[in-house]
Design a protein around this nucleic acid. Structure first.
Lengths: 225, 225
DNA sequence: CGTTTTAAATTGATATATCAAATTTCAGAT
DNA sequence: ATCTGAAATTTGATATATCAATTTAAAACG
């Protein structure tokens, strides 16, 4: 017989439940503005429109309520709550959490983590010339992920992940600017150095400023659309 | 599966909706350790134990999952996810968010806000002598609330509120220490001054350090219990 | 007409029933 | 005994039904 770990279980990602799917649909509709702030969400109507029962929809709406994208008035209804102000606050939340993660990473990062970060920065710098924005997006994500892993903060990472409001197209749009690409790499390098130098205060501050600066740029793009 | 006496049936008199009530019960049971990390939560069993149907329970569990206190494996079950490490991360999340709120407050605070903060500090300082810990707790809360209001950050405030893991008894325990009361007032005053001086960087740093320092003290108490 | 009352319709909240994936049980084969 | 695999059981996921608060419509009254 083969070894026990020859085959790993199928990732549960492929078996997405109805409620998770619906959650994604509604969240997307809110963030993209197709469901506008203040709009009332009728459970029966929505469920019928989606071709499902109210049970998984209600669960999805609870999660959205916990995330602060809808507000539930008991026995009255559920209303969309999202506007430019909240988008900015979500960006600030991301900055706060991501910078706290960077702070922890600066305390706990191993040599391998630092090495990996530097590798990615070299790749980014090389990628500055090319116009393969998709690859830059992937590199950006990998860079942040290395810091997340190094921090060992699973909960903070999860919480931070919930503050993402930017679509793929928004990322594409922002990183297609030459200057933005340059700035991002510079900032990433400074953050990597701070972590390598075991300087939590600096890493935190640099990460906060990085997220806020690039976040504001994103918000401008989003509000224009 | 959860131990049979971890949760008692809901009282027949409920003010909020069943799901909100149940959410609070289960959350409390997890944070207080009556439901231990890794334990599986059987929906039918739990609902029966609480004397309710599975519908409101499922909604409550979704919210707890969104908050990261339980983890749901599709088609398999729901498991409690909470330990000392996560408690510390929640405290760090609170520090990150509360300090970001303080930063915004330092940018936006009105004269009245500053005046109110200073009033509260005077009251706190006077209260240092007395042993009315309950009043100090109330003053503490009011102080933080003034900053929240001044910041104008409703979303951040909400998110921050979800990171609270301390029970009333934990607060009581910590603030009954003379030295802790003194430190808290000193730190609050420094924060108020930073906000009054329109110094976002300082306000942010002082608030972060304040939350982390007093949080660590809380965590020690909690882990001892 | 405008205001108040009351009845009907709507709808969120909850309960129950059904479905299907996952686990467990256990007979039969090796 | 150990392994295999099919049947029974459990249980999360979903659908449907019921209940009760709220809103809307309509009727009654001034």
């Amino acid at each position: 017989m083969g070894s026990d770990n020859a085959l790993l279980p199928v990732a549960p990602v492929f078996l997405k439940s109805l409620r998770d799917h619906v959650y994604g649909l509604v969240r997307d509709a809110i963030l993209s503005g197709r469901l506008k702030s203040g709009e009332k969400l009728n459970e029966r109507h929505l469920a019928g429109q989606l071709g499902i029962s109210t049970t998984p929809l209600k669960e999805a709406l609870r999660v959205l309520e916990a995330e602060g994208l809808v507000r539930s008035e008991p026995r009255r209804g559920i209303y969309v709550t999202f506007n430019a102000g909240q988008a900015e606050e979500m960006m600030l939340a991301r900055a706060a959490l991501e910078s706290m993660i960077a702070r922890q990473a600066a305390k706990r990062a191993k040599h391998e983590d630092v090495a990996l970060m530097r590798e990615l920065i070299v790749e980014m710098r090389a990628g500055l010339e090319t116009v393969d924005v998709l690859q830059l997006i992937a590199l950006n994500e990998r860079f942040h992920n290395v810091i997340h892993e190094a921090s060992g903060c699973g909960y903070l990472r999860r919480l931070q992940g919930g503050q993402s409001i930017y679509t793929h197209t928004a990322r594409l749009s922002v990183l297609s600017e030459e200057r933005e690409r340059f700035l991002a790499v510079e900032e990433h390098e400074a953050i990597a150095n701070a972590i390598a130098d075991r300087d939590p205060d600096l890493a935190e501050r640099l990460m906060r400023d990085h997220v806020i600066r690039s976040g504001e740029k994103h918000l401008i793009r989003v509000s224009q659309a």
